[in-house]
Simulated scan of single mutants.
Amino acid sequence: MTHTIREKQRLLARVRRMRGQVEAIERALESEAECEKVMHLLAGVRGAIAGLMAEVVEDHVLTHLVDQEKHPEALNAEAAEQLLVVIRTYLK
């Protein structure tokens, strides 16, 4: 079972919140809201998508890069965490 299936409901909840954020952008544009409000809404969606991407990438790294059952000594936990720190920073 992949991590996206295992975490399906939680990930879908995040996507649904993002959908609500995108709909708020649409409403703001339709109502000719101030640029500042639209930019804040856009920044929120961008952050939400980056957060989701970081979570999926992190789970992927920890789940799929090395099969811990077949190669228990192959996973360098410190190196994996260093990579994830870089990814989290990049996606902010």
Rank of each mutant, 00 (worst) to 15 (best):
M1E: 05
H3G: 06
T4S: 09
I5W: 07
I5R: 10
I5E: 14
R6W: 07
Q9S: 12
Q9I: 13
R10E: 11
L11F: 13
L12Y: 06
R14Y: 10
R14L: 09
V15L: 15
R16G: 05
R16A: 08
R16V: 01
R19F: 12
G20S: 01
Q21H: 11
E23W: 07
E23T: 13
A24M: 03
A24H: 01
A24F: 02
I25K: 03
R27Y: 06
R27T: 12
R27H: 15
R27K: 15
L29S: 00
L29G: 01
L29Y: 00
E30L: 09
E30P: 00
S31E: 11
C35W: 03
C35Y: 00
K37F: 01
V38E: 01
V38R: 04
M39W: 05
M39C: 04
L41P: 06
L41R: 02
L41W: 05
L42D: 00
A43W: 01
A43E: 08
A43D: 09
G44D: 00
R46A: 09
G47H: 08
G47Y: 01
A48Q: 08
A48V: 09
A48Y: 05
I49Y: 11
A50H: 13
A50S: 13
M53Y: 06
M53K: 04
A54W: 13
A54R: 09
E55R: 15
E55C: 08
E55N: 12
E55Y: 13
E55A: 14
V57Q: 09
V61R: 06
L62E: 12
L62D: 05
T63G: 06
H64D: 15
L65Y: 12
D67A: 02
D67F: 05
D67T: 03
D67C: 04
D67G: 05
K70W: 06
E73H: 06
E73T: 08
A74W: 03
A74C: 05
A80L: 06
A80I: 08
R88H: 15
T89C: 02
